[in-house]
Amino acid sequence: MPANLETTITGLKLNNPTILASGVLGVTKASLKNVINNGAGAVTTKSISLEPRSGHKAPIIITYEAGMLNAVGYSNQGAVKAAEEFANSAEVGAPVIGSVIGQSVDDFIKVISKIKNCGFSAIEVPLSCPHTPGYGTLGGQHTPEMAKKITDAIKKISKLPLWIKVSPNENMIAVAKAAEAGGADAIVAGNSMGPGMIIDIKTAKPILGFGMGGVSGPALRPIAVRCVYDLYKAIKIPIIGCGGITYGRDLIEMMMAGATAVAVGTAVYYRGVSVFKKITEEAEQFLTENNYKDITQIIGLAHG
C-alpha cells in the first residue's frame, strides 16, 4: 500500500506537499494549470503589485556550480490585469496562492482588494525579496515592526489564510514571531538568500542585469532546512519549507525539519516542469519503503 501524501495547511487540502514557489513560471493562469498538470499540490502566482512592472534588465537568471542567482525584479501585469488573468483560479485543479507585494501597507491592501474575487485559496506576502528596491528586504519590510503592521492590516480586510514569506538572512525568527502575533496563518521559510554576485572576468562586469541577485537552489538547501528547524521550535503556526528542494529526499528532509508543505522553484530549471511529479514519486517511494503510512507522520521528526 503506497504511503498517503496528502497534507493540510491553513485549511487547504493538498494532494501532495509540493507547491510551485512564487516567481517561477506562474505569470499566467495557463502556466499555473500546466504546473498542476505536472504534479504540483498547489501553485503560487508571480507576485502581483499595484502597477504593472517590467522588471530588471536581463540576464535576470544565471546559474553556477552550486545553484542559481536571480534578479527578476517583480515583473508583473499589475493588480487590475492580474485580476483578469487569474479570474476563476479555483478551476485550475489545485489551490492557487496569490502572491502580493507592495511598497507600503496601503499598496498591499489595494492589491488584495483588487484580486479578492479571483478565487485564490490563500495570500502569500513576501517581506523578504533581496534584490528589488522598495520591496521586501530592500524596502525595509523584513523587520518585526513591519511584519506586525502589514499582517495586522491584511488580516483586517481579508479572510483568506495569510502566509508570510521570510528571509533566511537575518531577523527570521523575530519577523516570523511578529507575523504570527499579527495573525499570520503560516510562515514560508524562506526566500532566496544573499544577494550574491557573479562577475564575468573577461569583460569585468557583473552578469546579472541588476548586478546582484538572490541565491537559491542546492546552495541554499541546508540553510533553509536549518531555518525551518529553528522556526518549528519558535512558532506555533505551520511552516512551508522553501529552498533548494530538488529531489524527493530533500522534501522528506524539509518536512522532518518541521515543514507541513514545501515550495519548489529553482528545481524547475534542473529537472523541468515535471519536477513536481518526480519529487512526489521519489518521496512516496521513500515513505513506502520505510513503512510510513502517511507523510504527515514525518513533520518535525528530526526534533526527536
Binding site: L25, G26, V27, T28, S31, N34, I60, Y269
Partner: peptide, 19 residues
C-alpha cells in the same frame, strides 16, 4: 523571451502554458 531556460515564465502561451 527573458531567461531562455524555462524558469521565468514570460514566454508561456495560452492555453497550454508551455514555455
Amino acid at each position: 523571451i527573458k531567461c531562455g531556460i524555462g524558469v521565468c515564465g514570460k514566454c508561456c502561451v495560452d492555453n497550454s502554458g508551455l514555455c
